[in-house]
Amino acid sequence: MHIPDGILPPYLSIVGYGITGGMTWYSLRQINREKNPQEKIPKASLLTAAFFVSSLIHIPIPPTSIHLILNGLMGIVLGYYAFPAILIGLFFQAVMFQHGGLSTLGINAVIMGIPAIFAYYIFRLKYLLGNKPFFTQVFSFLAGASALGISAAIFIMITITNIPAEIDANTEKNAILASLIGYSIQMLIEGIFTVMLISFLEKVKPEILNL
């Protein structure tokens, strides 16, 4: 779900960088409000690296396999650090694996990062309902699935409306339909996976969730 260099109309790159700049500024402001913002930097950084590495794990869906996005989980675990963390992860992917791109870094950070912050808020809703294990599961699922869903929606919107200006309407409809089916399966998997991972972390190391 990364947009590579060279494919978008230039104004979108600029808009993407604009929004990303704003979001980064906002996240950093929230981070700097904490008593000791530097205290959490090593945690956020190592988890960023861990997220980056875990995106290399493949989930089999015969006859193919998908890799996990986990941006919802990043939001849950990292809070406001999630946006800079995603930005850094995307930057590394662009320069090391040529996955995504430099001119599209801004727009890709919007696609992945904003849903992560959204997931963070969704997950915190469980505290309103009394923080029971059942609600933790429900909101983990919602956070994981909705983050991927929103990312996919933004991604599809951008690609379909922008790439080949003269594409045939019927082809376009079919392409949207096919990708919707694909992404809803992935949403389901990300949601379930997020529930499993959160319950693992709650058992083994609950303090990670209170970063």
């Binding site: 980064t24 930097i41 980056f52 930057f91």
Partner: peptide, 13 residues
């Protein structure tokens, strides 16, 4: 903050 995060995550990747 971003520079520190970049350095550390790069170091441990």
């Amino acid at each position: 903050i971003i520079v520190d995060m970049m350095l550390l995550s790069y170091r441990y990747l």
